[in-house]
Amino acid sequence: MADFLTFLFKGISVGSLYALIALGYTMVYGILQFINFAHSDVFALGAFFSWRFAVAYHLMHPTPIQAAGLLLLSMAACALTGLLIEWLAYRPLRQAPRLNVLITAIGVSLFLENAGQLVWGKSVVQFPTMTEHSIVLGGVHIRLVEVVAVGAAFALMLGLQWLVYRTKIGRGMRAVSVDHNIAGLMGVPVDQIISLTFVIGSALAGAGGLLVGLTYGQIKQPADASWIIYGLKAFVAAVIGGIGNLPGAMLGGLLLGIAEQFVAGYVSTTFRDAIAFALLIVILLVRPSGILGKNVVEKV
């Protein structure tokens, strides 16, 4: 039982990070119908930004309040990055075929990876440590820092829900995702809403970068495969949940995280990814548009 709960909590911890990144993919897809391959790189930059801020302000052992400050700084820096990416790389291609935008996204991704490598080098970086304590609940050991990370991730996701479903900006975003042209005709500032979508998605990725660094205590160089794998899994999580659907991305992230941990814990660590992904293929066979996705027939 203790093992089961350990795996479950760990699954939620990993899954909430996937969910946070998956939201960025799904929001952009919902509005522009294209996959922003540069998103996982913004996530990596988020980790490096927060590390640089921590070094600059001598916060290698941050208190919870200082960590919250780092979170905001990292989110702001990534939001700015997202804004610039959209403005410089994607906006000029607004009328171009979707394939061109997709290729551009790959280009932006490679650019960010290599620029990051150039600026921060290729070595493993020691991340700030908040606490090395654990809490013990009925024989289950849980690292305090992971509890904090899960809490922060859920708070951010709830915040996003509120923003999208309870505010005017959110209504604009939903309108643009249904149809830009008509939303534009109705007086929704489409370009601003699209920029804002990138800003929000990138800020969430920035938060994810800080949280992943705090959880594992070290971050690999920006072009390392571990970032790409995170991005890939988050993207898969978004597809499982139904791409374009916000609660779907969160659900998909958590499901993927938990499935991975149970496979690793009870079956095999070697085939963790293979088995977890096989499960997900089964889900997609049963529900092609994802768990919460709507089955829309596209007319040709």
Binding site: T6, K10, Y216, K220, G265, T269
Partner: peptide, 15 residues
């Protein structure tokens, strides 16, 4: 066992 570069070892360590 793990694969070098993995970040999460909780399943192995729990066992």
């Amino acid at each position: 066992s793990y694969q070098g570069g993995d970040q999460d070892f909780s399943a192995q360590l729990t066992r």
